[in-house]
Simulated scan of single mutants.
Amino acid sequence: MRFLLRLSSLVALAVAVIAGTIDSIQSVAASAVVMTPMGDAWQDVSPASLVALQSSIAYYVHPRFYTFIFQWLMLQPAFGVFLVLALLLWMVGYKKPPVAGRFTA
């Protein structure tokens, strides 16, 4: 389980770096700061899954959750969302080192 969490964290970190690189290239080209919102990035990659997730959240969870939390999340920069996701996944999959050290019996 920890392996999958850490692997997911690595994938989220790679996506965050790619999204940040794309935003920085667009910022240099436009001579202004460009940060792609998560909703726009998801719409570009897979619009069908975005619509399916929106409708399922509004139907199964609660419509207010969709209007407040999900729409707020979709307005945040994509690289920031994936950085936070990578950090959370890494924290959940982190294994504490033993207190006594590695050479104890």
Rank of each mutant, 00 (worst) to 15 (best):
V17A: 15
A100M: 14
F65L: 15
G80N: 06
L83R: 03
R102G: 10
V17C: 14
F103L: 10
I25Q: 11
V51T: 13
G101I: 03
V51R: 07
S46V: 06
V28T: 14
F68V: 11
I69T: 13
V61Y: 05
W42D: 01
S8W: 05
I22Y: 02
I69H: 04
S55E: 09
Y60C: 10
V34C: 04
Q54A: 13
F65W: 12
Y59W: 15
S24H: 09
R2S: 15
V15R: 05
V92K: 14
L50Q: 02
V51W: 04
V51I: 14
A32M: 13
S31W: 15
A12M: 06
V17F: 14
Q76P: 01
A48G: 04
S31L: 15
A41C: 02
A19D: 05
R64V: 11
D40I: 03
V33I: 15
Y66C: 02
A48I: 12
A16N: 01
Y94R: 12
I18L: 15
F103K: 12
G80L: 13
I69F: 09
V51F: 05
L85I: 09
S55H: 07
D40K: 06
G39S: 01
L13K: 06
Q71A: 07
S49W: 08
K95N: 09
Y60T: 09
T21G: 15
P97V: 05
S56V: 12
Q71D: 09
G101C: 06
F68H: 13
S46L: 07
A100H: 11
S46I: 04
A86C: 08
V11C: 09
W72I: 00
S56R: 13
H62P: 02
F3H: 15
A105G: 10
F3D: 14
